[in-house]
């Protein structure tokens, strides 16, 4: 492929005094790719992320954005064209939700009307009714709502690149899952280049186009979630991927539609799964109802296929 990657890291190293936090890593991220950096605490994933918008300067190597070395770009200008969302949101407590979202457009001196329109658009996109939330202060929001505002703020000036540092790490499991779901849906529409840091492998598997596993400042393995699950490079990656739980994690990556057979009229409509649900869920439903075949029923309640346990076992996952 001759296309310039959106973000390119070449032999990037970061030293803090005598300690090497990031050790000569190389990584190409294509435009529109959802890249998740995953690893245990202190593996250098956050440092790597923060080097991309120059919150931390790299000690060695080169980072290019659209082919241009970032050292040549004024840091403030660089950051204004890169969205940034963090775990604790960092919303300005003395500004309303609308004003928080309008931060970067304000820095870029967008005309007022355009900013207002964009703020409204983003709030709607992220499920925050403008009439209800625009004039609220961050202290009046729940954790999930505050994180939505954080994401909206990061997207406000329509940046090509979005950096997210464990944005859902502090949320309860239910809110976290629904926000992951929404982020995936959102990414389907906006196709940004996203670099996402997390230590939660389930989150990584769910979101990533490309998974980058880091350990002690180095990249241990990178590839699509399916590739990593199929062939983890070593024990460390395997254990991070859940060890013997890997079978289920892989099943969770495959939609029911992939293994669906034609409609079987003899099957009852209950129990059933939807074609866009994943095989892990299907397996759980089979286990619960003690059946080896399930009807596949679409959102309108029409049967559209059937699913057989033998196909799951036959290497379909």
């Amino acid at each position: 492929m001759t296309e310039t990657p959106r973000i390119a890291l070449k032999g990037v190293t970061k030293r803090f005094g005598a300690e090497t936090a990031v050790d000569a890593i190389s990584l190409n991220i294509a435009a529109g790719e959802f890249c998740v950096l995953v690893g245990t605490s202190g593996c250098g994933k956050s440092t790597t992320l923060r080097m991309i918008n120059r919150l931390i300067e790299h000690s060695d190597g080169e980072i290019h954005i659209d082919g241009q070395p970032i050292r040549e770009i004024d840091p403030q200008r660089l950051r204004r064209r890169i969205g940034y969302a963090i775990q604790s949101t960092g919303l300005f407590p003395h500004w309303t939700v609308a004003r928080n979202i309008a931060l970067v457009p304000g820095l870029l001196k967008w005309p007022r009307a355009r900013t207002l329109e964009r703020v409204e658009e983003l709030m709607t996109l992220l499920g925050l009714a403008p009439s209800e939330f625009a004039d609220k202060y961050p202290a009046q929001l729940s954790g999930g709502q505050a994180q939505r505002v954080g994401v909206a703020r990061a997207l406000a000036a329509d940046p090509e690149i979005l950096l997210m540092d464990e944005p859902f790490g502090a949320l309860d499991p239910i809110t976290r899952e629904s926000l992951q779901e929404e982020l995936r849906r959102l990414q389907g529409r906006i196709r940004k280049t996203i670099v996402f840091v997390t230590h939660d492998m389930d989150e990584a598997l769910k979101l990533a186009d490309r998974l980058v596993v880091m350990r002690a400042g180095r990249i241990v393995q990178q590839g699509s979630p399916a590739e990593l699950l199929a062939a983890p490079a070593d024990e460390f990656v395997a254990s991070l991927l859940g060890g013997r739980d890997r079978g289920l994690k892989r099943a969770a990556l495959t939609p029911v539609a992939r293994l669906m057979r034609p409609v079987d009229a003899r099957l009852p409509m209950e129990p059933a799964v939807a074609p866009d649900e994943d095989l892990r869920l299907a397996l759980s439903v089979m286990l619960w109802h003690r059946v080896e075949t399930l009807a596949v029923v679409d959102g309108e309640g029409r049967a559209c296929g059937s699913l057989h346990l033998s196909d799951l076992m036959g290497g379909g996952i």
């Binding site: 403030q76 200008r77 950051r79 960092g90 820095l107 703020r153």
Partner: peptide, 8 residues
């Protein structure tokens, strides 16, 4: 941190 990261 957020303020800096946004380019202020």
């Amino acid at each position: 941190e957020a303020a800096r990261g946004m380019g202020m």
